[in-house]
Simulated scan of single mutants.
Amino acid sequence: MIIACLHTADSNCAVFEAAARKLGLASGVLHHTVRPDLLDAAERAGGLTDEIASETAAALSALATHADAVLLTCSTLGPSTAIVGQAPVPVLRIDAALAERAADADGKVVALCAVETTVAPTTALFSEAAKLKGVTFEVRLVACAWKSFKAGDRDGYLAAIAKAADASYDDGASIVALAQASMAGAADLVRRGPCPLTSPEAGLRAALERIAQRAPRVES
């Protein structure tokens, strides 16, 4: 089994390997491709453009030819999966799986973003999932966190996210969802409420479910 991951930050390779180990996946199941240029272009453009989406979709389609499932791990680029077209295997955005899991919670859901370009796609995703399940949600941007990430200050980045998650619980959130894969490490630092939901684990679970659904059934 091969799950191909398209990342925009090299550090997310380790994040997903950790999530895979937690789920009991064997070493070598995940194949990583890192394209920081795609997110850099989106940040310069102020968001996802048609041209960037098309380039991302082409990269996803290429990965689909040698995998059992493909995961797009960047929330900013997430809508690109909608234009991949016919692919031989499932092509999934990890934040969609996260939104579905979060919407199963009772009460208010707060989704945290670290970079401004993820706010619009995250809001659209969570709005749809919340409407289907009848829950309330709010998307919050963790101010200045992305500057720490870009500067290589991982500890400062995760601490800022954990602080925002604790504040969300103090404000009445039932569950906090960390919308970007790079935020996953902050979950262990949260003290004021349940462990936040993270997109790497949600995305991998969704991929495994889709792969299992496609597997041929053995007649007894």
Rank of each mutant, 00 (worst) to 15 (best):
L63N: 10
A167Y: 09
A207K: 04
L178G: 12
R35W: 00
A64I: 12
A111W: 00
G172C: 13
A42F: 01
L77V: 07
L38F: 10
Q180N: 06
A181E: 03
E138A: 12
G46N: 12
A67L: 08
P88M: 03
A177M: 06
C13A: 14
D170P: 02
A67T: 01
V218C: 11
D95P: 04
V70I: 09
H7K: 08
L30S: 10
C144G: 02
S75N: 11
I52R: 08
L25Q: 07
L112D: 01
G172H: 09
L141M: 05
A102N: 09
A114H: 05
T81P: 00
G28K: 07
I94R: 07
Q213P: 06
T49M: 01
F16T: 05
A181I: 01
V139T: 14
A87V: 11
I3P: 04
A162D: 07
L72T: 03
P200A: 07
C144K: 14
E17F: 00
T123S: 15
A82F: 03
L98M: 10
W146Y: 14
D40W: 01
G203T: 11
K108D: 11
K150T: 15
A124R: 15
I161N: 07
L132Q: 12
L60T: 05
L30E: 14
L132E: 15
L178Y: 09
S220V: 15
S11C: 00
A42C: 13
S127F: 00
A181D: 11
G85C: 10
A164E: 10
V109S: 02
V176M: 03
P88Y: 12
A162C: 12
